[in-house]
Simulated scan of single mutants.
Amino acid sequence: MQAHYTTTYKHLSLTERQLIGRWLKEGRSRRQIARLLGRSPQTINNEVIRGQVQQMDTFRHYHSVYSSDYAQKQYGRHRKNSIKKTKLDKKLSEIIVHYIKDRVSPEVIAKVKLKGIISASTVYNWLYQGRLGLKRTDMLYPHKTKPIKPVVANPRHYGKFIDERPESISQRLAYGHWEIDTVVLTRAKNKVLLTLTERKSRLEIIRIIADKSSEAVNSELKVLTQNFQFKSITADNGTEFARLSEAVNCDIYYAHAYSSWERGTNENHNRMIRRFLPKGTIKTTTKEVAQIEIWMNNYPRKMFNYSTPIQVYLGG
C-alpha cells in the first residue's frame, strides 16, 4: 500500500477505474482508494463524480453509483473533444507545399499568399512536425551549422576597414550603399556571378562575369555605374575586389577576414540565389540570371511590411 501519491499528472486507466468500482462496492472510502492507487484524494473524488450513473434497485428505486465503463467512455469522449481542430486540410497543404517549393518563406506564405488565415509559426510547426511531407532543407533558408574558420594572422588590407564606415551607413539611413560579392558555381575555372545588394532597400543586382578576377569585376562595375548610384561599397578581402576604387568613384570598405556577417545582407541574398543555382551548376544563361534577379526584387519582405525591394528602392 502506498502512503503517498505522485504529483506527476497521469490519466487514470481503465484498469484503475475498474479497481475504483470494485473497492467502492467493498465499502472502501475514496481516501483509502487514493492511497491504494497512489493518487490524490481529489483525483478519486472527481473521478467518482464524473462516473456516476443512475441504477434501479429491486424496489424500483434509483441510486447514483459509479460505473467504470461509463467513466471510461466519458473520458474517451472528452479526450476527443479536447484535441484542437487543425486548419490543415489537403487543399491548404498543397498550397503551402507549392509555395515552399517555389522558394517562398513561411512569413510571406502566411501574410501575403494566405491573407493571414494562419500564422507563419503554424507553417513552421507543420513543416517541422512532418505534416507537409517536406524537410528543413526544402526551406528558403535551411539552417545549417558551419565550422568556425580560424582567423588568419596577416589579413589582406586593400583599403579602409569596415570599422571606419560611418554609422549612418550601418543604420541604413540612406540609399546608394551597397555590399558586393562573387558567387562561384563550380570549382573549375568558369564564369561566376557578381552580386550587389543595396543595404536600405535590399535591391539585388546579379551579373555573369567572365571569371573571378579584379578585371572582370571592375569591367562590370563600370557598366553598372551608368544606371545605379554608388555612394559606398562594402566588400570582403577577396583579390577580385582589390581594385574597386579604380572602377567606381565612391567610398570602399572592407570587412574583416572570415567575418561574413559584416556583409550579412549580401550573404543572405547569395543563399537565395543558391536555391536556383546550387554549387556545381555548370551552365547558366543571362536570361536565367535575370529571372532570378527579377524574382528576388519582387519578393515581398516582412521587414518592409511585405512591400518588395523594387517598390522600396523606387519609392526612395
Score class of each variant (00 low, 15 high):
Y5S: 12
T8P: 01
Y9M: 12
H11M: 05
R17N: 09
E26Q: 11
R28M: 05
R28P: 01
I33D: 03
L37H: 06
Q42M: 10
I49V: 09
G51A: 05
Q54N: 15
T58R: 11
F59H: 13
R60V: 13
H61F: 07
S64K: 15
Y66T: 01
Q74T: 07
G76S: 05
R79N: 00
I83G: 02
K84L: 14
K90N: 07
S93H: 07
S93Y: 01
V97Q: 04
Y99P: 00
K101C: 03
R103I: 06
V108G: 02
Y124C: 01
Q129L: 13
G130M: 06
M139D: 10
L140P: 00
P147L: 09
K149V: 11
V151T: 11
H157S: 12
E164K: 07
R165V: 00
I169L: 04
Y175L: 11
G176R: 09
V183N: 13
V184T: 11
L185S: 12
R187F: 11
A188N: 13
N190I: 01
N190L: 02
L194W: 00
L196Q: 08
L203W: 07
I205T: 03
I209Q: 03
E215C: 02
E215P: 02
L221W: 02
K222R: 11
V223A: 10
N227K: 14
F228L: 06
T239P: 04
F241W: 05
A242N: 08
L244R: 12
L244V: 07
E246L: 14
V248A: 10
V248G: 06
Y254K: 06
A255E: 01
A255D: 08
H256C: 10
G264Q: 01
T265D: 15
H269I: 09
H269R: 07
H269Y: 05
L277S: 00
K279E: 06
T281Q: 03
M296P: 10
